[in-house]
């Protein structure tokens, strides 16, 4: 009696968003930016099944507007984003992985992440057969045909430029030195879009952290 407020503030339930404050504290993103990323996440994760998780087909669909198109590197990035190997990417995975691509993220993290993408078998080395697998997949998907000899020439050139100790595999230090000499290779590890994500997805203001008046 008498203590029922005339206005009831209801926090809209956003399954999957988790705690944006915690995610912001773990990343280069502000709380608003985490909320804006949730708008992007919602749109990607509802591409095939609206379950609040991104599966491989949805990731593919978001990248290529075509879920039938298999792409080796899209699959690989998905697997690296899917830290716990659940077969799906939840919002936390999504934000923490994109954080590496933030323009303000430490360069060292970007170099380490790129190494992880290319270390297909997770052995701690980028091996010749892994590079060969990537090159062949890339050529196949680009419908380019090269002779075995030409592919081997690409591999020889690659290892002559990276594998300084000539043990037939690229270790982390060799990778750091190589990308240090070839900074253009790290361009793909930075997404300028992440700097103004709140302008790209302004609807977060309406959908997130809105106190509704009942």
């Amino acid at each position: 009696m008498g203590c029922v407020p005339s206005k009831v503030v209801v926090r809209r339930h956003l399954p999957g968003l988790g705690n944006p404050v915690v995610l912001a504290s773990q990343t280069a993103f502000s709380v608003s930016e985490v909320q804006a990323l949730y708008e992007l996440f919602k749109s990607i994760s509802s591409g095939v099944i609206d379950d609040g998780l991104i599966n491989k087909e949805e990731f593919q669909l978001a990248l290529f507007k075509n879920q039938k198109k298999e792409n080796f590197f899209a699959n690989r990035i998905f697997d690296v984003f899917d830290v716990d190997k659940k077969g799906v990417i939840d919002f936390g995975d999504f934000v923490r992985a994109l954080n590496i691509f933030h323009p303000n993220a430490p360069h060292e993290n970007k170099v380490n992440f790129s190494f992880k993408i290319y270390d297909l078998d997770n052995t701690g080395y980028i091996e010749r057969q892994e590079v060969k697998q990537m090159v062949i997949a890339l050529l196949f998907e680009s419908e380019m045909r090269l002779t075995d000899e030409a592919v081997e020439a690409i591999l020889d050139k690659t290892f002559s430029e990276t594998d300084v100790n000539q043990d037939g595999k690229i270790d982390k230090e060799e990778w750091c030195n190589f990308v240090g000499r070839n900074p253009s290779l790290m361009k793909i590890m930075t997404l300028p879009y992440l700097k103004d994500i709140t302008t790209t997805f302004p609807s977060f203001v309406f959908n997130s952290e809105v106190d509704e008046i009942d």
Binding site: F64, I77, K157
Partner: peptide
């Protein structure tokens, strides 16, 4: 015959590694 490229240069220009597409509406 064109000069041989380094594999990582080839890979870095591949579309699958271009996550910018996620942000295109």
């Amino acid at each position: 015959r064109p000069p041989t490229m380094n594999a990582f240069e080839l890979i870095a220009t591949s579309q699958g590694l271009n996550l910018g597409k996620l942000f295109e509406k």
